[in-house]
Amino acid sequence: MLDFGSQSLVSRGVEIYRLHNGAPPKRLIIYKTTDFRREEVDGCFDAWSKNENLDLISINQSTPWKGTLLTKQRNNPSKTWSSFYPVNRGTYLPTGEYQVLLWTQGNVSGIAPDNRPFYREARRIPEPILLTRWGGHGSWNDVVNYTLALTKMNWNNSGLYDPLPATLLVSSKLARFVKHMPSVSNLVNHKYDLRFFL
Rank of each mutant, 00 (worst) to 15 (best):
S158Y: 11
I57W: 12
N154S: 06
Y17C: 06
K26M: 06
G90N: 06
F197W: 14
L160T: 05
S83H: 11
R27C: 09
T71F: 07
F197E: 03
H180I: 02
G96W: 15
S139D: 08
L174I: 11
S172K: 09
A112Q: 12
R74H: 10
T147G: 02
Y31V: 00
I59T: 00
K50P: 04
P128V: 01
F118G: 00
F196R: 08
H180P: 00
W81V: 04
V41D: 03
F196L: 11
L164I: 10
L19E: 15
Y146W: 15
P77Y: 12
R38A: 12
Y119T: 00
Y161E: 03
Y146E: 10
A47E: 04
N51M: 10
A112G: 05
A112P: 01
Y146R: 03
P86S: 04
T95C: 09
E39R: 12
T132G: 06
A166I: 15
N145C: 04
R116Q: 15
V143C: 06
W134F: 15
P94R: 15
I129S: 08
S62Q: 13
V108A: 07
L19T: 06
K152P: 00
T63A: 07
D3A: 00
S8C: 05
L9M: 13
H20V: 03
F177G: 00
L102C: 09
K152E: 12
Q105D: 09
P126F: 11
E15V: 08
G5T: 11
K26L: 10
V10G: 02
R27G: 02
